[in-house]
Write a protein that binds this DNA or RNA. Structure first.
Ligand code: MN
Ligand code: MN
Ligand code: MN
Ligand code: MN
Lengths: 222, 222
DNA sequence: ATATATTTTTAGATTAGTCTAAAATTTACT
DNA sequence: AGTAAATTTTAGACTAATCTAAAAATATAT
């Protein structure tokens, strides 16, 4: 069995692994777990003994297949609970992360399976993140960052690549909600900032920093 | 803040207190927490420092008002989650206790409030146990034990006073489900065992031990 | 009332997870 | 290559929750 704490470490190593092909450093893990490097070293040795990570001292860490499976199941639970909180209990999408952070450690395969069914087998969570299926397979949603879209293309907002309350509330303020239709009016060459049109009414200015964190889907022109 | 473990101790002391007006013994707590008396002593000193119980060594323990409030909120969460698992996810009533045992420690007033609303503010859980309201008030449901009912009285099964899987499956086997109409045909003077009629069809024999753990409501004759 | 049995507490140890400070290793920079 | 800086690991300590074994207190039974 994996403890609450071990699961959080595995999840964080998984997230860091998505951004690179290299081994993950002790310090990177320490930053996300909000602990000190010394604590991380202890835990990595422990996870290594349990065959959940491959780790040699001073050489960084990598998930084993077994460890990745555990991480994916925790992420699956996290995202399913987020869907529950937003779709069934009416929470706002910027209020659910902390609660899901606790719920993700509840231990019952039967529960997860039934919850998934109750929610209608959703493909992604309220932030647009894909939900691994019961086998740990992450669905390919094919979303792009708004920063990769070219001028005049029409897209629909599908999610975010960052979950901070700050960011989510900023999006709410400028009226950029899930499902919003977006058209790129102009791209500023110098700083890659954008002028976009949201729906039919609003024009709006976006920094590249924001655009990189907005996930969109191209509208099919058929 | 109260930890997972502290909450379990408080809940157990609450349950034991319901059966007596006296102080609760260290051993009684140890039995239900599945720990040793020495561990209980340590925890009681700690809970006492936090003003959650009143405790003097060798004299047993009692919840303070503050401790009772915490216990009631844990019980509230436990029972609400049980309702969710049965009514929304389709679990059987004998499958939900262990899962609720974990869910009851999730920490968010907002979550509990919204869950309560989502479930339609239920008065009792799938076992017929009353659900404390947000102020910690336990609704008076006025259910009686089947063992207290007199011959020829008509009653409806509303719950159970015991949650063991064994017991619940036995009830299922003899067809004694929530909402079943029961009529007492005969009471055996010697061992207080009962012959009852369930619904219109079945006659059935019940030991006093079973009858004591079946909760019923008298049918209004109007 | 005294001796015996039971219950409860203390003393000392263990495990998981964390910390600080110091030592070891790796990386980066002349 | 040689030194300085940064990273990582070890050593030793702490807290929460638990245990066993021994001591202390309470309850029970002659
Ligand atoms: Mn977590
Ligand atoms: Mn999410
Ligand atoms: Mn519990
Ligand atoms: Mn119950």
């Amino acid at each position: 069995m994996t403890s609450f704490t071990e699961e959080n470490y595995l999840k964080i190593i998984y997230k860091l692994s998505a951004e690179t092909d290299n081994e993950i450093s002790t310090n990177a893990v320490a930053e996300l777990t909000q602990t000190k490097a010394a604590s991380v070293t202890d835990m990595l040795r422990k996870l290594s003994e349990k065959q959940l990570v491959s780790y040699q001292k001073y050489q960084g860490v990598r998930l084993t297949e077994k460890g990745e499976k555990v991480a994916l199941m925790v992420i699956r639970k996290h995202r399913l609970w987020e869907v529950f909180l937003v779709n069934k209990l009416g929470f706002n999408w910027d209020e659910v992360h902390e609660i899901a952070e606790e719920l993700e450690h509840i231990n019952s395969d039967e529960l997860v399976q039934r919850l998934d069914e109750f929610l209608g087998f959703p493909q992604c969570d309220p932030h647009g993140d894909p939900i691994p299926n019961r086998h740990g397979l992450m669905p390919e949603l094919g979303y792009k960052n708004l920063s990769e879209i070219t001028v005049n293309q029409q897209v629909v907002m599908m999610g975010v690549a960052q979950h901070s309350t700050n960011f989510l509330q900023y999006l709410a303020k400028i009226g950029l909600n899930l499902g919003a239709k977006i058209k790129i009016i102009e791209i500023n060459d110098f700083d890659k900032s954008l002028t976009i049109k949201i729906g039919v009414k609003k024009e709006c200015f976006l920094s590249n920093e924001v655009a990189k964190n907005v996930l969109v889907k191209a509208i099919k022109m058929d």
